[in-house]
C-alpha cells in the first residue's frame, strides 16, 4: 500500500468516525435490549451501591434564609379530574387519602387526621431531572407513620402513590422502595414555606422523598398502595415517566 493511499484511508476514517459513532449510538439506544441491559447497568449499580453505603443517610436541611425566592412549579399544576376539582373547591374538606393493597388495616384519612399525626418540617433542596434546583420548606406526616397505622403485610416490597393528575388521560403515579418509604425525611407534605400546600405544588398532599429527583415526588396523592411487585402496576416500570419516556425508576443520581 502506498503512503498516499494509506494517508487517504486514515483521513477517510477520521472523517467518517463521528458519523458512524453518532449513527451507531442512535441505533444502539433504539434497541430495547441494549437500552435496558447495557444502558440500564448504571441505574442497577447506583441503586445497589447507594443502598449499601448510605441507606439511612439524611438529606441536607437548609436554613430559612437559604429558601429559593421563587419555587417554580413543574408537571401538572391543576389536575383535570372532576373529583379533584370538586375537592379543590371545597378546600379538600371531604377528601380522604386511601391506604390499601398489601396492608392489614386499610385506612381512609382526611386532612385533619393527617395533621393530627406526628408532623415533620424540613427545608430541603429539590433537584429536577432536567438540572435545576430549588430550596423550599415542607411540612407533613412521615409516610412511615401512615404505613405503620396500616400495618404492611410481610409480602409488601414497594409503595405506590396514585395521583389525581394525568397527561393525555394517562394517570400520574410513582413508587418507592421500603427503605425510602420508612426514611425519616420521606413525608406526605400538606404544607409548604409556612403555609398550606399550594394547588400548583400538589395540594392536598404530595410526596417528599428527599434523596431522589423531582419526578419521584408525586403530587396530588389520592391513594397509597403497598405491592409486592411493580410489574403489574399500570405500565409496569414503577412510574408515569418511567413508563412513557424511560426515566430510571431509581432517581438518586
Amino acid at each position: 500500500m502506498s503512503r498516499v493511499s494509506r494517508r487517504a484511508l486514515l483521513r477517510g476514517a477520521a472523517l467518517a468516525a463521528p458519523g458512524l459513532l453518532l449513527g451507531g449510538c442512535d441505533a444502539l439506544g433504539a434497541s430495547p435490549s441494549f437500552r435496558d441491559m447495557v444502558l440500564g447497568s448504571g441505574e442497577w449499580l447506583s441503586y445497589r451501591v447507594h443502598r449499601l453505603i448510605g441507606s439511612d443517610a439524611l438529606a441536607r436541611e437548609f436554613a430559612p434564609s437559604e429558601i429559593s425566592p421563587t419555587f417554580r412549579t413543574n408537571g401538572n399544576t391543576r389536575p383535570a379530574s372532576p373529583e379533584w376539582q370538586r375537592h379543590a373547591e371545597t378546600g379538600f374538606a371531604d377528601w380522604r387519602l386511601e391506604v390499601g393493597g398489601l396492608v392489614e388495616a386499610p385506612q381512609r384519612l382526611g386532612l385533619a387526621e393527617l395533621k393530627a399525626m406526628p408532623a415533620r418540617t424540613q427545608i430541603t433542596r429539590h433537584d429536577c431531572v432536567e438540572g435545576w434546583s430549588a430550596i423550599g420548606q415542607w411540612t407533613g406526616v412521615p409516610l412511615g407513620a401512615v404505613l405503620a397505622a396500616a400495618r404492611l403485610k410481610p409480602s409488601a416490597r414497594y409503595i405506590v402513590l396514585h395521583c389525581a393528575d394525568d397527561f393525555d388521560g394517562m394517570a400520574y403515579y410513582e413508587s418507592i422502595d421500603l427503605v425510602d418509604a420508612f426514611h425519616p425525611q420521606t413525608i406526605l407534605a400538606y404544607g409548604m414555606n409556612g403555609g398550606e400546600l399550594p394547588l400548583g405544588h400538589g395540594a392536598p398532599l404530595r410526596l417528599r422523598v428527599e434523596r431522589q429527583l423531582g419526578y419521584k415526588h408525586a403530587k396530588f396523592v389520592m391513594r397509597i398502595e403497598a405491592v409486592a411487585l411493580l410489574g403489574a402496576v399500570r405500565g409496569g416500570r414503577g412510574g408515569f415517566w418511567e413508563d412513557t419516556v424511560g426515566y430510571d425508576w431509581y432517581a438518586g443520581i
Binding site: R35, L39, G42, E43, V245, D248
Partner: peptide, 15 residues
C-alpha cells in the same frame, strides 16, 4: 442521542 431524549442521554451518561 442526536434527537432530544433526556432519559436515554442519562442512561448513556450514568452507565
Amino acid at each position: 442521542p442526536s434527537a432530544y431524549d433526556l432519559a436515554l442521554a442519562r442512561r448513556w451518561h450514568l452507565s
